[in-house]
Write a protein that binds this DNA or RNA. Structure first.
Lengths: 246, 246
DNA sequence: CGCAGAATTGATACATCTCAAGCTGGGTGG
DNA sequence: CCACCCAGCTTGAGATGTATCAATTCTGCG
């Protein structure tokens, strides 16, 4: 079931080498990381960790998408993080997972054994500094997300999410968001609902509405075309400028 | 108007010494911080910084409460952070403020000139390590907040907020939340609404409802008594256990 | 082919927002 | 000392956006 090919890539030609927690490392530091790392693969839909589980590793997403979700006793779910390639999973110094981690697409993670990684955090400032930087970025993202959850309408939420995915997708292909954008939704309607604090029916309705109004084009359920990115951003209700990094 | 007494306390008897960004510093490191720091006071209601403003300092909250808020073009506001004594303001490496910072009570901050502080971040791992730890805590808080914003009902939101404030207040007095708790709300109804993603009318109604149902007691608009903390936590809808640190 | 999971659509219920009118308490000036 | 004033708050009535419940309709796949 779980296709766990334990391939062992060299850090040198790692696709996330320049963005992940190891981005700043010198070759000798990389060598240390190399010794404590191992790869793991998960299939789309698989749970990586359950909230509360003991965690004996921290990790970087190498490819694919994972989500962090929190659940209330009665089953209400809220996604609280979306992990893309190069994003970091886990918290040094914490024994158990605080959130459910799920693979929404096929996923490959570069895992570091926790104890030795924590040791490196102390002895190798470059790792700690990079992790701080990444954590601050995540905090900013979380706060933008809070604005979305607290104050945006369903339509604005959908438009915002599509914008985020479109931008991310464009950045992976190194194209600037300009003219028509085309991408595949990596999330089901239900996952989008969990992300946005909506029900899947409302997500579906709003996507239909945006399609009806020509803001987006759909080819099947997942293949999306954005004819006019600025138009989409208007619908997202965001602060004027097209979402330049703050 | 602005009572800016530029008192200069010694770090040694600073009330937030053991919890702030300087918590791990040795005496020689403290001495360096001492040289680049200065105090600033703000009155309740005053704006500390506007989003987009140039920031030439980072700071720790010494006493009082500040809030971080984000605003949509049409004026919808969402609070995205609540800064209590020992919390950190600003982001090393960033030139301008990303959020509006407002003093909701009288506020004293210990400010560090930005450039020298950034230098210390590189040379003094203890500062960077502590800041990482604090940022990870903030990220956790933000994610719990996201669950509240996305999935909780108005009544649950109010109960959750009261619980947070009650716990914080109790921790400042070093009493465990048990039996009746009494405290003053540091926020107006409108600020509570901005925190919770509600309107102030809804906040008011839900507070009235909780009062009617005996979950809380009100003495005036601000003075709150919680006769049964567990009851309040039930109303907050949170994951079973009374909110033990995860 | 036909099934199962995913998505759409419809009808209705309900929570929260919106607009509007009073209330309350503490401060101020006559 | 009282009257009034004003910001902060409460309460009401109605509008509205989203959730809920319930059918269908897609779509990919064995």
């Amino acid at each position: 079931m779980q296709d766990m090919h334990l391939v062992h890539h060299e850090c040198g030609d790692c696709p996330i080498r320049h963005r992940a927690v190891c981005a700043r490392c010198e070759t000798d530091e990389l060598a240390r990381l190399e010794q404590i790392k191992y790869y793991r693969s998960y299939q789309a839909g698989q749970t990586v960790i359950w909230s509360g589980d003991r965690m004996d590793f921290v990790a970087s997403v190498v490819s694919g998408i994972a989500t962090l979700t929190q659940t209330l006793e009665d089953g209400r779910r809220q996604m609280v993080g979306m992990l893309l390639p190069s994003d970091f999973v886990g918290r040094p110094g914490r024994a158990t997972a605080a959130y459910d981690v799920t693979a929404t697409t096929d996923l490959v993670m570069c895992c570091f054994r926790k104890k030795p990684f924590e040791d490196m955090m102390v002895t190798t400032p470059r790792v700690a500094q990079r992790l701080l930087e990444m954590t601050l970025d995540e905090l900013d993202a979380a706060r933008e997300w809070m604005l979305l959850l607290g104050r945006k309408t369903a339509r604005e939420k959908i438009a915002s999410l599509l914008g985020i995915i479109a931008r991310r997708d464009a950045s992976l292909r190194l194209k600037t968001p300009k003219g028509a954008l085309i991408f595949d939704l990596p999330l089901t309607r239900e996952e989008m609902a969990d992300y946005l604090g909506l029900t899947l029916e409302t997500v579906s309705r709003q996507i239909s509405a945006l399609k009806r109004d020509g803001v987006i084009h759909l080819d099947g359920k997942r293949h999306v075309t954005i004819p006019d990115f600025d138009r989409l951003m208007d619908e997202a209700g965001d602060d004027s400028d097209g979402g330049v990094l703050g």
